[in-house]
Structure formats: C-alpha cells, structure tokens
Simulated scan of single mutants.
Amino acid sequence: MATEVGEGWVEYHPIGILLAVEPWNFPIYQLTRVVAPAIAIGNPIVFKHASIFPQCAALFEDIVRQAGAPSGAVTNLYVSSTKIAGLLGDSRIQGVA
C-alpha cells in the first residue's frame, strides 16, 4: 500500500522478534497494547521499558508468564537507552514499536 510518506503493508503471520521501546507514561498499558497482539500471532517481544519503572517491567514479564505464554515470548531488557541503536541494527529484530 503506497502512501505519501512511503510504503506499508500488513503481515498476517509471525515475522520474528519484535523490539518495543516503551515510554514512562502508562507503564503497564503501553506494554499490553504492543505485546498482546504480537505474541497472539506468534512474535516474541523484547522490550526496553522506561528506566524509572524497572518494577513494572518485571511485573509485566511475570504476568505474561503466569498467563501461560511460552518461555521467551516476552523478555525485558534492562539496558540503557544508548544500547537501543545497536539493537535496531541487529538482523534478528524484525520490527520495532
């Protein structure tokens, strides 16, 4: 689908590991809206939450496991924001939110 700003498409199958870089506001909701549809279709998520909310990131990861998601479906990365650029260049990362 062509638009004025570029080309986009919709995938209806898992494409691989997705990276979510999350802001500080609404720490659980922001993760839920990105992670739920991704793991529902089979894409594992690695996420870097706002550094002021490490407890929310750990809690969210635990909640997803308790809900029955397979091991590795969701992984919190306790990394600094400066490490994200390197992740964006990693060929294993297939999408970013």
Rank of each mutant, 00 (worst) to 15 (best):
Val34His: 10
Arg92Glu: 09
Ala40Glu: 03
Asn43Pro: 02
Val64Trp: 00
Asp90Arg: 03
Tyr29Gln: 10
Ala85Phe: 02
Pro54Ala: 03
Met1Tyr: 13
Ala40Trp: 00
Ala58Pro: 01
Lys83Gln: 15
Ala73Met: 08
Trp9Ser: 12
Gly16Tyr: 11
Gly72Trp: 12
Val21Trp: 15
Tyr78Phe: 14
Val64Thr: 11
Gly6Val: 11
Pro27Thr: 07
Asn25Pro: 01
Pro70Thr: 10
Val5Trp: 15
Glu22Pro: 00
Glu4Tyr: 09
Val10Glu: 10
Pro23Thr: 00
Ile15Arg: 15
Ala73Gln: 04
Ile39Asn: 00
Ala58Glu: 06
Asn76Gln: 10
Gln94Asp: 04
Ile17Leu: 15
Ile41Thr: 07
Pro14Glu: 09
Phe53Leu: 09
Gly72Asn: 07
Leu59Ala: 13
Ala38Ser: 12
Ser71Asn: 10
Met1Lys: 09
Gly16Met: 12
Ala58Gly: 02
Ile52Cys: 10
Leu18Ala: 03
Leu59Val: 04
Ile17Tyr: 04
Asp62Ser: 15
Leu19Val: 01
Gly6Asn: 02
Gly8Arg: 06
Val5Tyr: 15
Ala50Tyr: 07
Gly6Asp: 01
Gly68Gln: 06
Asp90Ser: 03
Gln55Trp: 05
Gly16Asn: 06
Ala20Gly: 09
Ile52Lys: 13
Ala69Asp: 05
Asn43Thr: 02
Pro70Arg: 14
Ile39Val: 15
Arg65Lys: 13
Pro14Ala: 11
Glu61Ser: 13
Thr32Pro: 02
Cys56Met: 12
Gln30Trp: 06
Arg33Thr: 08
Phe26Asn: 08
Phe53Thr: 11
Asn76Gly: 07
Val21Arg: 07
Gln30Phe: 07
Ala57Leu: 06
Ile39His: 00
Gly95Phe: 14
Ala85Val: 11
Pro23Ile: 00
Lys48Ala: 05
Glu7Trp: 15
Lys83Tyr: 15
Val35Cys: 03
His13Val: 04
Gly86Lys: 12
Thr32Trp: 04
Lys83Arg: 15
Ile17Ala: 09
Gly68Phe: 11
Thr3Lys: 05
Pro23Arg: 09
Glu61Asn: 05
Leu59Pro: 00
Ala85Thr: 09
Ile17Phe: 08
